[in-house]
Amino acid sequence: MKANIKLISKHRKFSEDFKKSIVNEFESGKFSVLQLQRMYNISRASLYKWIYTYSSSNERGQRIVEMKDSSTQKLKALEQKIKDLERAVGQKQIMIDYLEKMIDIANEELNIDIKKNSNTPQSNGSAPTRKK
């Protein structure tokens, strides 16, 4: 005997505050409709409906034109920033490796312990100077 199984509806309801926040993100220029669609998994039709409903500047009957070049330029700028940051991290790592090698050389060849060890005895200070 088969059980009577009902399918769960995949229809989602969004609060008015959420819709307004999405429209504000679009109007501020932070995200395009395509980016918002991907981020929140919302249909493009719903996004445009919300924009026309909650936007202060866009009205139904007016076409919203997004420049693909601007989003492409933003993406390229972000990729360049990532490359610059990775380069800076790489340079810092090289400097750290260099300084650690110099400390090792100073310790091995010159018998100078630059690294602080917790088990080294404290010095008694310098000897008092004598007057001549």
Results as ranks from 00 to 15, higher is better:
T53Y: 03
K81C: 07
K10L: 10
V33P: 00
R38E: 13
K81W: 03
T72S: 11
T129S: 08
P121N: 13
Y54K: 02
F14K: 14
S55M: 04
S55R: 02
L78S: 12
D69Y: 14
K10P: 01
A3K: 12
S56F: 04
K116N: 04
K6N: 04
S118W: 09
I103Y: 01
S126I: 13
M102V: 09
K10G: 12
K19S: 12
E86T: 05
N24T: 07
I112H: 07
L99W: 08
M67P: 01
E59F: 04
Q80P: 00
Q122W: 09
S9E: 10
M39R: 14
A45E: 10
Q80Y: 04
S32P: 04
S28Q: 06
S123V: 13
L110C: 15
R60L: 07
T120R: 09
K13D: 11
Y52A: 01
I114W: 08
K13V: 15
R12C: 09
K83W: 03
L75S: 10
E27M: 11
S56H: 06
E100I: 10
D17K: 14
Q73K: 07
E100R: 11
A45T: 07
I114Q: 02
M102Y: 08
A77D: 07
S126E: 06
K83V: 03
G61W: 07
N58C: 06
L34I: 06
T53G: 01
Q62A: 11
I5H: 05
N111I: 02
M39A: 11
F31S: 07
S123R: 12
T72I: 10
K2V: 09
I94H: 05
K6W: 04
D17L: 10
T120K: 07
K68I: 12
S123C: 10
K10T: 09
V65P: 00
S118K: 13
M102I: 10
K132H: 02
R130L: 06
M1N: 11
A88E: 15
R130W: 03
K76V: 11
E79F: 10
V65Y: 10
W50I: 00
M67A: 12
V89M: 12
R38P: 01
R87P: 00
E16N: 15
N111V: 02
D97S: 12
I5C: 05
K132C: 02
S9G: 09
N41W: 05
R130F: 08
K68S: 10
K81S: 06
Y40E: 02
V89D: 06
I5G: 01
E79C: 08
S71M: 14
H11E: 14
K83A: 09
I94P: 00
Q122N: 14
Q80E: 12
F31P: 00
L34W: 03
S21L: 13
K115I: 10
M102P: 00
I105L: 11
S28K: 15
E16L: 15
N117A: 07
L47D: 00
V65R: 06
E109V: 04
L75Y: 11
I22D: 00
S71Q: 13
M1G: 14
Q62N: 13
S123W: 06
Q35H: 06
S126C: 07
T120Y: 03
S32C: 13
I96P: 00
R63P: 00
K132D: 02
V33Q: 01
S126Y: 08
